[in-house]
């Protein structure tokens, strides 16, 4: 919807008003230039420059130092833990996301709008508080922590705590993407399948899933990206035990605090690549979601 097209349409309808209208539906050229310059400068200074800085710092000491930083045993174990935590948290939230969006889109029940609001709750809570509630619950002075420790189960400063905190902060992503998709899709085809004798599972696999798959994938990408990048919540519950309860973002902080700047930026650059990959995936999948 460029300016010339609009101007042309004006000309057809109101020949005389065209020059006047062009002046009143578009900004003067100098205003345009300033707005464009501001947009580019702002995004450039706040986004592009910092991203470039990460790579510049990461490769400052050369390729060999970069390689050493990312193949360090502590870095590798952080990579492993990050992927492991995401591999547990994301499927949990996918199953929940499908169930919750199904319930919200297909049924009318009391408390439906409250349920919708509650799903968004983790987004409104500070990551630090998200981690803290699990310390209050499972920590040494926590409500059920002492009982669990007595049975040999450690949650805080261990993998279960990291998984719980990650699951909490990524909780809404899949459900939020699926609710509008499911609502737009309607229940007619599913009802037809049931009437024709399909089981609930068959209906889900053959009718529902193919229709929601791009929306689902979009949610999975958002959820995975956040799960791998979460810092605040995981930081509270992890205990920062090097090589054991350190995820990639925590490892970046430790290196930074130990003045290992180049290594910190090298590990950070891995996370930048992951984040950019998730953005590309979102673009591609987002187009598919719009098409269906």
């Amino acid at each position: 919807m460029g300016a010339p097209a609009r101007g042309a349409r004006m000309m057809e309808t109101r020949g005389i008003a065209a020059p006047l209208a062009a002046a009143a539906t578009d900004e003067p050229a100098w205003v345009r230039r300033i707005v464009i310059a501001v947009a580019i400068a702002f995004v450039g200074a706040f986004v592009l420059v910092p991203l470039a800085a990460v790579f510049a710092e990461a490769f400052k000491a050369g390729l060999a130092a970069y390689g050493r930083a990312i193949t360090d045993p502590a870095a590798l174990s952080a990579v492993k833990l990050t992927f492991l935590a995401a591999a547990i948290a994301v499927p949990l939230n996918v199953v929940f996301g499908i169930a919750a969006s199904w319930a919200i889109a297909r049924f009318r029940f009391p408390g439906r709008s409250i349920l919708t609001a509650l799903i968004d709750l983790p987004l409104a809570v500070s990551p630090v508080i998200a981690g803290m509630v699990f310390v209050l619950l499972f920590g040494k002075q926590g409500l059920i922590g002492p009982w669990l420790t007595g049975h040999g189960i450690q949650v805080i400063f261990a993998l279960p705590g990291i998984v719980l905190a990650t699951t909490f902060v990524t909780f809404p992503f899949v459900a939020r993407e699926l609710i509008p998709v499911m609502e737009a899709q309607g229940a007619e085809e599913e009802e037809a399948a049931i009437v024709l004798g399909a089981t609930g599972w068959q209906t889900f696999l053959r009718i529902t899933l193919p229709k929601i798959k791009w929306g689902l994938l979009f949610g999975v990408v958002l959820c995975t990206a956040r799960a791998m990048g979460e810092f605040g919540a995981v930081s509270v519950v992890s205990g920062h035990i090097r090589g054991r309860t350190n995820t990639l973002p925590l490892h970046v902080e430790i290196l930074y605090n130990e003045y290992e700047y180049q290594a910190a930026f090298a590990v950070a650059s891995l996370l930048v690549v992951l984040a950019l990959a998730s953005l590309v995936a979102r673009r591609i999948i987002g187009r598919r979601v719009e098409a269906t």
Partner: peptide
């Protein structure tokens, strides 16, 4: 490009954002 990278702050892990901004 501007349209695409507006989402970067949302996608970038916060620790990396902090580190990058501090460096800049």
């Amino acid at each position: 490009l501007v349209d695409a990278i507006v989402d970067v702050p949302f996608a970038l892990p916060t620790a990396v954002s902090g580190l990058a901004l501090t460096a800049v």
